[in-house]
């Protein structure tokens, strides 16, 4: 029989897990050129909620965890070299041809729209993991140090129990349909900002009429064959690879960044007092298992 047994009920485990989940953060920014347009984003993410289930096969399963993009600044630049409003016939010839065409006007260079997409969400649809005890030896610990030396220098060894995922699946980013209007308005504003001040309102309206519905313009220019919401979700999730990055970051975080439970080894049971050194107990053979009811941690006291 193990010298030490500690058990946490499913309820207690949920609370432990919440701490791990709440401390997750992920930040990333990137810029990429996709031909007719370029885009960049800066994102910070945290996790929220979800359903945790303990299984009898020594695993935990996590579902429907919201991945909240607390910050998601997105910038879309339409790179439009040589894009011109097609000319129309200015001086028609008598046989319904065109002698002189309206010379048209061209749009060159990038037009950029900043979108604040903070608050978008995705989900961890499925995360399956087992518990993995690890013994952490602080790399800053000097070879000649005793355990007490290491503690007093802040470089103690640690027993750590991690949630070690075997699979992580993240759902596509949930972009609401309202993004259509938001993007259209942003592009429209960007175009409006380009008109010279001398340009009368009716001329602006003619130009806007020539451009046609901005939504159509955007979908044409960006090559969008689905909805803008789906396109944006795909752009961020797949073309920028945010979903893969998130899956990797989540797996890495749970597996090695934030332990579910950790304590110093040797574990101090009596603090230093009156000039006397603390009393520390070596812990050996730490094991962590789980079943549908509880997490069980067992260990021995070293000699």
């Amino acid at each position: 029989m193990s010298h030490i047994t500690i058990a946490a009920s499913a309820k207690a485990f949920q609370q432990l897990f919440n701490e791990v989940e709440n401390n997750f953060s992920f930040s990333k920014s990137d810029t990429a050129n996709f031909g007719p347009f370029s885009a960049s984003y800066s994102v910070s993410v945290h996790l929220s909620g979800g359903n945790l289930q303990l299984n009898n096969d020594n695993t935990i399963e996590l579902q429907n965890v919201d991945i909240v993009f607390g910050t998601l600044d997105f910038k879309l630049c339409l790179d439009l070299p040589g894009f011109c409003i097609p000319s129309f016939c200015l001086v028609p010839d008598p046989w319904n041809g065109c002698l002189v065409g309206f010379p048209g006007f061209c749009i060159g260079g990038p037009i950029c729209a900043d979108l604040n997409l903070s608050g978008l969400t995705s989900q961890i649809t499925d995360l399956k993991a087992s518990l993995a005890p690890k013994y952490y030896i602080d790399p800053a610990r000097l070879p000649g140090w005793t355990d007490l030396d290491a503690e007093l220098n802040g470089h103690s060894n640690q027993w750590q129990i991690y949630i070690d995922p075997v699979l992580v699946n993240v759902a596509p980013i949930d972009v609401p349909a309202t993004i259509d209007n938001i993007l259209v308005n942003a592009i429209t504003n960007a175009i409006d900002n380009l008109f010279p001040s001398w340009l009368p309102g009716w001329a602006v309206d003619i130009i806007m009429a020539f451009l046609g519905p901005i939504a159509n313009l955007i979908t044409d220019l960006l090559g969008i064959t689905t909805s803008i919401a789906e396109w944006l979700s795909n752009l961020l999730g797949n073309l920028f690879g945010l979903l893969s990055l998130l899956e990797t970051a989540i797996a890495d975080y749970f597996a090695s960044k934030y332990p579910l439970y950790q304590f110093e080894d040797p574990f101090p049971i009596l603090p230093a007092s009156g000039g006397l050194i603390p009393v520390k107990i070596p812990i050996r053979n730490l094991a962590a298992t789980i079943d549908s009811q509880e997490m069980i941690v067992q260990a021995n006291v070293g000699a």
Partner: peptide, 10 residues
């Protein structure tokens, strides 16, 4: 007066 229709105006 120009109107923005469902397609680009010509």
């Amino acid at each position: 007066y120009p109107k923005i229709g469902k397609t680009a105006y010509r």
